[in-house]
Simulated assay, not measured.
Amino acid sequence: MKIKAAVAKAPHSNFSLETLDIEKPRANEVLVKIKGVGICHTDLIARDQFIPIPLPAVLGHEGAGEVVAVGDEVTKVHPGDAVILSFLSCGHCPRCEEGLSTYCQDFPTLNYGGCRADGSTPLSKEGAPVSGSFFGQSSFATYAIASERNVVKVTDQVTKGVPLEILGPLGCGIQTGAGSVINSLRCKKGSSLIIFGAGAVGLSAVMAAKIRQCKTIIAVDPVTARRDLALELGATHVFDSADDNLADKILALCPRGADYALDTSGNPTVINNAITSLGSYGVLGLVGVPPNIESLSSFNIAHLITYGIQIKGIIIGDSQPDTFIPRLIDLYISGDFPFDRLIKTFAFEAFNAAIDSHKKGECVKAVILTN
Rank of each mutant, 00 (worst) to 15 (best):
E232Q: 15
L233Q: 05
G234A: 05
T236N: 12
H237L: 01
V238T: 15
D240F: 04
A242F: 05
D244K: 11
D244C: 03
N245M: 09
A247E: 10
K249E: 08
K249N: 10
L251M: 03
A252N: 11
L253I: 10
C254E: 02
C254H: 00
R256V: 01
R256P: 03
G257A: 02
Y260A: 01
A261T: 12
L262M: 10
D263T: 04
T264Q: 04
T264M: 04
S265L: 09
S265P: 11
G266V: 03
N272G: 10
A274R: 02
I275G: 07
S277F: 03
L278C: 11
G279N: 08
L284F: 02
G288L: 00
V289H: 09
N292E: 04
E294C: 04
E294T: 11
L296F: 04
S298C: 08
A302K: 05
H303K: 11
L304M: 12
T306G: 12
I316W: 09
G317K: 06
G317A: 06
G317E: 02
S319K: 03
F324E: 13
F324H: 12
I325A: 07
P326I: 02
I329D: 14
I329N: 15
I329H: 13
D330V: 04
D330W: 02
Y332C: 13
S334W: 01
P338K: 03
F339N: 12
D340E: 13
L342Y: 06
T345S: 09
T345M: 06
F346S: 14
F348Y: 10
E349Y: 03
E349N: 15
A353Q: 14
I355T: 10
I355E: 09
S357N: 12
H358E: 05
K359W: 08
K359E: 07
K360C: 00
K360Y: 01
C363L: 08
C363F: 13
C363P: 14
K365P: 03
A366R: 07
V367H: 02
V367T: 05
L369Q: 15
